[in-house]
């Protein structure tokens, strides 16, 4: 009896452990504390929620379904949660922002697809399904971003780009410390991130390792984009053309003479062989026709 009970208990514990571990698998996002506490500078209201809904329908609905309708795509592992459920709503705004931004396993990252503002609007839409939610606004003032000036300095010796971020306040120049900085090189379809996301040091700059082998245009120019995200000043974007890439001027892929190219770019041997064979046969045929003409002339006599 006791032993049966023991087995029973073990099974129950085991099942719970498994269930719990599943739970923790879907809960386990490893969100850094400073990200978790991040707040939106956009107020969550009807207007922003509505804007968020449009973004949600386009980017999230195919997997998560409609909030409250439990119609998410069940074939995925892990199954995408219904976002009106407690599992989601119990998270902080910073958590949700982090999850949307970075993605994981089957959840794609929306860091590049959606701007920060758009990501917050999606959260505004998700929060509209939570009646008990009260928003804590961030102290960021987006209008202050205009005061920030970004300066790039390339050091050819060690191939580093130093990015300075300063704000020209009325009271004087303020260095942006602990601001998040991302550096990108513009490519045809999007921005290629250089190095990783850094934060400015106490002197208001960050050093990025620039790759030595990144192709630029014909003269080696590359369009550099800097994204700064500061607690106080919000998002700042800066673009600049730098001559730090490998000059790239590759020939067109249909330049060489080849069997697959156009007639004008056919291999010489084929042109020579083909035309000479045609000429040869044509000449012989003409010769034969001429002898026939002669034959007729002889008969005329």
């Amino acid at each position: 009896m006791i032993s049966t009970n023991k087995i029973y208990t073990t099974i129950v514990i085991a099942v719970f452990t498994v269930l719990l571990s599943f739970q923790s698998y879907s809960q386990n996002w490893d969100i850094p504390a400073n990200k978790s506490s991040k707040n939106s500078y956009i107020p969550f209201n009807n207007e922003t929620a509505k804007a968020g809904e449009a973004i949600y329908t386009k980017n999230c609905q195919s997997c998560h379904g409609n909030p409250g309708k439990a119609n998410s795509l069940k074939t995925l592992k892990p199954v995408p949660p219904d976002l009106s459920e407690k599992q989601t709503q119990s998270r902080t705004d910073g958590d949700l922002f982090y999850i949307i931004t970075t993605g994981r396993v089957v959840m794609p990252s929306f860091k590049i697809v959606l701007s920060e503002e758009e990501r917050w609007k999606v959260i505004a839409f998700i929060r509209s399904y939570n009646k008990s939610y009260v928003q804590v606004l961030s102290k960021t003032d987006p209008s202050k971003s205009k005061l920030v000036k970004i300066v790039l300095d390339f050091n050819a010796k060690n191939n580093k780009i130093r990015v300075y971020a300063k704000a020209n306040e009325a009271s004087g120049v303020v260095l942006l410390k602990d601001a998040e900085i991302m550096l990108f090189a513009n490519r045809y379809f999007g921005k290629l991130q250089i190095d990783k996301t850094l934060t400015t040091n106490s002197e208001g700059y960050a050093d990025f390792n620039f790759p030595k082998d990144l192709p630029g245009d014909k003269t080696g120019n590359i369009d550099i984009v800097v994204n700064v995200n500061d607690e106080l000043y919000g998002e700042i974007e800066h673009q600049e053309k730098l001559n730090i890439g490998i000059p790239t001027d590759k020939p067109a892929l249909n330049e060489q003479r080849a069997i697959w190219n156009t007639l004008l770019k056919a291999p010489i041997w084929i042109i020579v062989t083909y035309t000479s064979l045609i000429l040869l046969v044509t000449l012989v045929l003409l010769y034969i026709l001429n002898t026939l003409r002669k034959l007729k002339k002889i008969g005329d006599k």
Binding site: Y287, I288, T291, L295, K296, I298, G299, D300
Partner: peptide, 21 residues
Amino acid sequence: SLNWNGSLEQEKIILQSTRIL
């Protein structure tokens, strides 16, 4: 028949041309 008259000259032409062809 191109004014064929069966002369040797004509026969030679036919023979030679046929050979070339």
